[in-house]
């Protein structure tokens, strides 16, 4: 993926240091991007911590409120429930998407012509925004005009958004519809990078397709699996658009996951301090997970495992 522009990548980078005469750019070259990023990403991140200790209605100035928001948050059963729901939806997402995308990715890594055409269709969900996908499914599953109203034998009363179990099912399903193509692409690239020699050796030893899949393909995809699952976890924990458009956290608060609860507290109930406290909880969780990412896989390795996509 990164090497095509240059003819001489064959040669590995030499260990020897280049001569002192080479003019190197100063850090001033990095300054515009860094300042910009500090101002619009890092400063807000610090502000979210500050705002979580204030009362703010969005119009007047924030008032210092000590630990009030945090105390309220600990005793807020909707918040506790929202964390469980976030975890549940994330875990279900990983469980559904991982086997699907591995199978599809390994299958799509083959070279047959029909696979290329089918893959092109598979990747269409990638082209749609999360908003468009959620709206499409909301319309398709509409209790009155959608598919469930046509197939009552399958969908019961047809109101999938009216019960907690089916509403969570819809969220997990739409999440899988939206993200599986992306993970399929990752696995496809990783599968193509597996050295063919391994399969040739296995064939000589008389290993069948299924044996090859479990003994060669899966172990070789290990790093990719870690990468892909971590992306699923981070994406799952911050699911927002899907909930806002499909269920609005309902019925009741049955699908109110943390990211959506934060939005509701801040922009619907105008409790921006309380919303900030929830946001900070999300940041802490996301940071812990990404630290695990860096520890477990390392970004440099991540690049090389997906090369050739």
């Amino acid at each position: 993926m990164t090497t095509s522009a240059e003819p001489r990548v064959e040669r590995r980078r030499s260990v020897r240091r280049s001569g002192a005469a080479v003019a190197r750019p100063g850090f001033a070259w990095a300054a515009p991007a860094t300042l910009f990023f500090l101002l619009f990403a890092v400063v807000p991140l610090i502000l979210v911590a500050v705002l979580s200790f204030t009362n703010w209605d969005g119009l007047s100035s924030p008032q210092y409120a000590g630990l009030d928001n945090w105390k309220a948050l600990i005793h807020d059963h909707v918040m506790i429930q929202s964390l469980w729901l976030s975890v549940l939806i994330t875990v279900l997402g990983v469980v559904v998407q991982t086997p699907l995308s591995i199978l599809l990715g390994v299958w799509a890594a083959g070279k047959q012509r029909n696979r290329a055409i089918l893959s092109a269709i598979y990747f269409i969900p990638l082209l749609l925004s999360a908003t468009a996908i959620s709206i499409l499914w909301r319309a398709l599953l509409d209790p009155n005009f959608g598919v469930p109203s046509q197939a009552k034998w399958l969908f019961g009363d047809g109101n999938l958004f009216g019960h907690q179990t089916s509403a969570i099912g819809v969220l997990v399903f739409v999440g899988a519809w939206q993200y599986t193509p992306f993970h399929t692409l990752i696995y496809q690239g990783a599968t193509r990078a597996i050295p063919p020699v391994l399969y040739q050796a296995a064939e000589i030893d008389g290993a069948g397709t299924i044996r090859q899949f479990f003994s060669i393909t899966l172990p070789q995809l290990r790093t990719t699996m870690i990468t892909s699952m971590i992306l699923m976890v981070v994406g799952g924990l911050t699911t927002f658009d899907t909930v806002l458009i499909l269920t609005q956290g309902g019925p009741g608060t049955d699908t109110t996951i943390s990211a959506y609860y934060m939005y509701e507290q801040a922009f619907k109930s105008f409790d921006f301090g309380g919303g900030s406290a929830i946001a900070l909880v999300l940041v802490i969780i996301a940071t812990i997970i990404s630290l695990i990412v860096v520890k477990v896989s390392g970004y440099d390795k991540m690049r090389s495992s997906t090369e050739g996509l």
């Binding site: 619009f40 990403a41 400063v43 807000p44 991140l45 502000l47 979210v48 705002l51 703010w56 969005g58 924030p62 981070v234 924990l237 911050t238 927002f240 990211a259 934060m262 939005y263 801040a266 922009f267 921006f272 919303g275 900030s276 946001a279 900070l280 999300l282 940041v283 996301a286 940071t287 997970i289 990404s290 630290l291």
Partner: peptide, 13 residues
């Protein structure tokens, strides 16, 4: 690692 969702309140500010 910074999710955009987490900074919408301060961004609004």
């Amino acid at each position: 690692a910074i999710p955009a969702q987490a900074v919408i309140v301060p961004m609004f500010y």
